[in-house]
Amino acid sequence: MVGYLIQRLLGVALTLLVAAALIFFLLDVLPGDPARFMLGINASDEALNALRQQLGLDQPAFVRFGQWLMGLFTGDLGMSASQRAPIAELILERMQLSLPLAFGALVLSTLIGLPLGILAAQNQGKIGDAGLMGLAQIGIAIPNFWFAMLLVVVFAVTLKWLPPGGFVPWAENPAAAFRALILPTIALALPQAAILARVMRTSLVDVARQDFIRTARAKGLSKNQALWRHGVRNALLPVMTIMGLQFAFLIAGTIIVENVFYLPGLGRLIFTAISARDLFVVRSALLVLVGLVVIIMFLVDLLYALVDPRLKKRAGN
């Protein structure tokens, strides 16, 4: 198991290094000079050169790549040109919002999606199954920004239960921060729940046809007992992969919902940084996203090995 972990962690490190190189060199070949962009088109050559030197832009690319990598370890990612603040601080601040939002949406979508999927599979071919899957279809089809606006209209504007948008940092007022995240979490979670419900249903229906479910029935278990005791855990295996992908999407892909609710999240940070050509922010924020996704996929793989004894063998137990 230790050998397996070392091998996998080395893989993770290598993936991150390749991703960092890709991000760095792709952004580096993009046209546009950060120094000129910061100083404006009327800046003098001396001022430009001075700033380039200050930013280290006069160094060869691989040296700057090395400096950036070092910075990732020391937490010194430089200053954002557009926001005049340390990049590391900016990213950390946004993560306070994006991580709880993504995690909350994942938990909520799991709590809604999996039971509905199981219920539909239990009633396979009956009216309940058709109804639930119809709902799930609608849940997948409705764009989440529209759904987000609907939530705002109902729960914030009409009922006035929750704030319509904006975010108060946790340190200032934890209760308000939590309340601010409720509607965005729901808006993000429901479409994901619909996807999960469909995947869970399909997977469980497949598992229900397996021979070991028939064996379980032959032991004297009822149909539902057999499904719960032997079916669900087996059916969860493919669902776990989808959940890992969803979490990755939730961390990076929340930008539309962030816009509807005026939330300063990681997605918006990257979006505004791109608009402002603040490439230093873009590359570091992108790498943080890639890092999160790679780590999540790694955790999903570990979870797989934990749930499925057939993989544990390969993992060297």
Binding site: Q210, D211, F212, R214, T215, A216, R217, A218, K219, G220, L221, R229, H230, R233, N234, V307, D308, P309, R310
Partner: peptide, 30 residues
Amino acid sequence: YRGAQIGMVFQEPMTALNPLMRIGDQIGEV
């Protein structure tokens, strides 16, 4: 009677057991 007075063995040895459960537990379930 199913599983009690009548026991049944099936054909496919590769798929007739739950892959995620120890065989002792699968017997214990009966």
